[in-house]
């Protein structure tokens, strides 16, 4: 009877030791979990970016081709123009998919403000804050880039419409090309911002993980 009490008391002590030492998931681990879930949610984005790059390359080539073959008559290039217009639609769809992925990734991240605040170590907390800032900045920059990319594609469309029209004027084509170039420059500016934040996020994330002692596979 007495031995049973000793044994059961020892079991209680050991249980409470385990509970006390493992109490709660550290805030830093929670944060890292969410950050990696968000990063991993962008699985299709690299392939979509590559697709967009290839479509843009083709568009440049098609445009040059249309101007060359359409010198005498734009009747010769109607199919080429239609194909270019279809490719513009593909670009729009690819960009829509990128947006969907980034929106989903943002949902995976969730609101980490209070988690970051709960990180006790001052250095880790600041680094986590920087990582969060970079990711949020990247997301916001993408929203601007997405809108401006849409405007750019519309401006491209307007150029092809001018090239296709039977009563087209060279002055009108020139004006539509100028508008297209302006829209393109605007999109490029936002893209550079997005890429800047992307690099920041990747670098700061690695630094945070190193500081937190995360062993990467």
């Amino acid at each position: 009877m007495f031995m049973r009490k000793i044994i059961s008391s020892t079991a209680v002590i050991l249980t409470m030791l385990v509970v006390l030492t493992g109490c709660g998931t550290p805030a830093i681990d929670l944060f890292i979990d969410h950050v990696e879930k968000a990063s991993a949610a962008e699985t299709e984005v690299p392939a979509l970016f590559e697709q967009l790059k290839q479509l843009e390359e083709k568009d440049q080539a098609h445009y040059a081709n249309i101007l060359e073959q359409g010198k005498d008559s734009n009747v010769n290039v109607q199919t080429l123009i239609d194909n270019s217009a279809k490719a513009l639609e593909e670009r729009k769809q690819a960009m829509d998919k990128v947006k969907q992925q980034l929106d989903e990734a943002m949902k995976q991240l969730g609101d980490q403000t209070s988690t970051v605040k709960d990180i006790k170590d001052d250095g880790l907390r600041q680094q986590a804050q920087d990582v969060l800032g970079a990711y949020n900045g990247r997301y916001e920059a993408f929203q601007q880039f997405y809108k401006s990319y849409d405007e750019w594609v519309k401006a491209e469309q307007a150029v092809y419409e001018q090239l296709k029209a039977t009563d087209t004027k060279l002055k009108s084509i020139q004006e539509s090309v100028a508008a297209r170039n302006q829209a393109f420059k605007q999109a490029e500016q936002f893209k550079e911002q997005f890429n800047g934040f992307t690099e920041q996020f990747n670098v700061k994330k690695q630094a945070l993980y190193a500081a937190a002692g995360v062993n990467q596979k």
């Binding site: 990696e36 990063s39 967009l52 359409g70 060279l170 090309v177 992307t198 990747n202 990467q216 596979k217």
Partner: peptide, 26 residues
């Protein structure tokens, strides 16, 4: 986290350039 997998997020490249309007067309 002994087997932690880290995913880098992607930046976007570009192949587009300024376009030049034609002086001879149609």
């Amino acid at each position: 986290r002994e087997d932690f997998v880290v995913t880098e997020v992607a930046a976007m490249g570009s192949a587009a350039k300024d376009k030049t309007a034609p002086t001879l067309y149609n």
